[in-house]
Computed example of a mutant assay.
Amino acid sequence: MLRLILGVVLGVLVGMVVTGVVEGMGHTIFPPPPGVDLTDPAQLSTVMSKIPLEAKVAVLLAWFLGVLAGASTGNLVAGRRAWAGRIVALALFAFSAWTMWMIPHPLWFMASAPVFALLAAFAAERAFGRPRA
């Protein structure tokens, strides 16, 4: 049980770090429009329509890689128990759902985010969630 808890905690941390690093790289490549205060929720909701498609895809990629890395870490630390990766994937998706709720995103983005999270969780489970025979 301790390995499962440790796997979940470390998996969430790894997932958040990977997501942050990849999002940061995306924001570096595709910076927000000049003069936008990224700490102001009102400005964030209006700027979403001005952000290029590539920047939004970079965020989806960051969320996918974050769930993949986090769920994989959780599974491996927990002794290849798939429940750790599933819990990590659910927690990381909850964070992304909260982000989409706080900052309005396009409909295609909100429909794609759960699909990418599920694909990443499935890949992590197939790779590291089951003991190999």
Rank of each mutant, 00 (worst) to 15 (best):
1 M>G: 08
2 L>S: 10
3 R>T: 14
3 R>G: 05
3 R>W: 11
4 L>R: 00
5 I>L: 13
8 V>G: 03
8 V>L: 10
10 L>H: 02
11 G>I: 07
12 V>N: 05
12 V>F: 13
13 L>Y: 00
14 V>G: 13
14 V>W: 04
18 V>M: 01
18 V>L: 00
19 T>E: 14
20 G>W: 11
20 G>H: 13
20 G>A: 15
21 V>S: 04
22 V>K: 01
22 V>I: 13
22 V>M: 01
23 E>P: 11
26 G>T: 11
27 H>M: 09
27 H>N: 08
28 T>F: 12
28 T>W: 09
31 P>Y: 00
34 P>E: 12
36 V>L: 12
36 V>A: 13
37 D>L: 01
38 L>A: 13
41 P>L: 01
41 P>W: 01
42 A>D: 12
42 A>N: 11
43 Q>K: 06
44 L>N: 06
48 M>V: 09
50 K>E: 12
51 I>S: 15
52 P>Y: 05
52 P>S: 10
54 E>K: 02
54 E>R: 07
54 E>L: 07
56 K>N: 09
57 V>P: 06
57 V>G: 03
58 A>H: 11
59 V>Q: 12
61 L>Y: 00
62 A>W: 03
64 F>C: 10
64 F>P: 11
65 L>D: 03
66 G>A: 10
66 G>M: 10
67 V>T: 13
67 V>A: 15
68 L>R: 14
69 A>H: 06
70 G>T: 10
70 G>K: 02
70 G>V: 12
70 G>E: 03
70 G>S: 03
72 S>V: 04
72 S>Y: 00
73 T>D: 13
75 N>C: 15
77 V>F: 06
77 V>H: 09
77 V>R: 07
78 A>M: 02
79 G>L: 01
79 G>M: 14
79 G>P: 08
80 R>D: 10
82 A>F: 07
82 A>S: 04
83 W>R: 05
84 A>R: 00
85 G>E: 10
86 R>K: 06
87 I>G: 15
87 I>E: 11
87 I>Y: 12
88 V>T: 06
89 A>L: 14
90 L>Q: 07
90 L>F: 07
91 A>W: 06
92 L>E: 05
94 A>N: 08
94 A>K: 05
95 F>K: 01
95 F>R: 11
95 F>A: 03
95 F>V: 02
97 A>I: 06
98 W>H: 11
98 W>V: 08
99 T>N: 14
99 T>E: 06
100 M>S: 03
100 M>P: 02
101 W>Q: 12
102 M>S: 10
103 I>H: 15
105 H>N: 07
105 H>I: 04
106 P>T: 04
107 L>N: 02
108 W>E: 01
108 W>T: 04
108 W>I: 05
109 F>P: 10
109 F>L: 07
109 F>Y: 09
109 F>N: 06
110 M>Q: 10
110 M>G: 02
111 A>Q: 05
112 S>L: 12
114 P>E: 10
114 P>C: 10
115 V>N: 11
116 F>Y: 04
119 L>Q: 03
119 L>A: 15
119 L>F: 08
120 A>C: 01
120 A>Y: 01
120 A>L: 04
121 A>S: 12
121 A>H: 04
122 F>M: 13
122 F>Q: 14
123 A>Y: 02
124 A>R: 05
124 A>I: 05
125 E>Q: 07
126 R>I: 08
130 R>L: 12
130 R>Q: 08
132 R>L: 15
